[in-house]
Simulated scan of single mutants.
Amino acid sequence: MLRRLLLPLLMLLLLPVPAAAQKMIALSFDDVPRGRGAFFPPEERTKRIIAGLKKAKAPQAVFFVNPCRIGTGDGVGGAERIAAYVAAGHVIANHSCTHPHLNAITAEAYLADIDAAESWLRDQPGHRPWFRFPFLDEGGTDKAKRDAVRVGLAARGLRNGYVTAESSDWRLEALAADAVRAGKPVDRKALGALYVRWHVAAADFADTLMRQAIGRQPVHMMLLHETDLAALHIGDLIDALRKDGWTIVSADTAYADPVGALMPDTPAANGTLTEALAWERGLPAPRWYRYNEDAPATAEFRARVLHEEAGE
């Protein structure tokens, strides 16, 4: 009798872990080496990002590099900062040389810009053969250009360094920098809370949408930028993601997921892979996290961080 009672319990314990417990995500940072932001000189930002990742015991992240920014403006010292990320155990990949919009130039000129970046990157320690489209612009409505670049990347042995989750942190950084320059009082605690909350919500949004689009949870890739907000709050963000059930994994792990082989065919090629797959499969808008839109993001920043009334 006891055996008959225990057998169903044992079978329950052997069932697969529910999908909700399999949330995995890697971290990526765009626009390296980025110029001065709201609060720190670039060298201090790099030190803080490295220290924050280390303290949080985060695995390998990937930093997408624009080599043409090295040695110019605030990019002076950029090569040393990039080397510091690699020395700390992270990897680097191609984000083009000059950060152009694909929809603004020819496919040939775009691929030449990628080649210029790769000529610097390929001999660097920590290099990975990944390319991330600046602005996540894969050609917009020009499918011939989109396909030409896809063919060009494959011929060069480069794969798409796609994104599945983002919350437009560059906009939050820009709003903060503008407020500081204007001499407005910035609620730094509220700013950090917004940075963390938006990213966690964006990851959850992407996870839900991806399960609807492809029927499973891929290993996600979160888009961050090399910003002062990351320098201040990357550890807080990692803690919040883990409390929300996410496991932080390496960039290598994320880009080993077969979802990266998918090439969605949509009316316009721009945005996250999650959005494109949802669009291709006919899921209704919005297919993007709400604070990716300028108006609600700016209104929320003004209300929460600047404590301004609507309309001020």
Rank of each mutant, 00 (worst) to 15 (best):
P59N: 00
A61C: 13
A61G: 12
V62D: 01
V62M: 06
V62A: 09
V62E: 04
V62F: 01
F63L: 12
F63A: 11
F64R: 03
F64I: 05
F64V: 07
F64E: 04
F64N: 07
V65H: 05
N66F: 02
N66K: 06
P67R: 13
P67I: 11
P67M: 13
C68P: 12
C68A: 15
C68N: 14
C68H: 14
R69S: 15
R69C: 14
I70A: 07
I70C: 07
G71I: 08
G71C: 13
T72R: 15
T72I: 15
T72S: 11
G73C: 08
G73Q: 06
D74A: 12
D74K: 08
G75V: 08
V76E: 13
V76I: 14
V76A: 13
G77S: 05
G77I: 07
G78Y: 08
G78C: 04
A79P: 04
A79H: 07
A79R: 15
A79T: 05
E80I: 03
R81T: 09
R81E: 14
I82C: 04
I82R: 07
A83H: 10
A83Y: 08
A84H: 07
A84F: 12
A84K: 06
A84M: 11
A84P: 10
Y85V: 01
Y85G: 00
V86S: 01
A87R: 13
G89D: 00
G89V: 02
G89R: 03
H90V: 03
H90C: 05
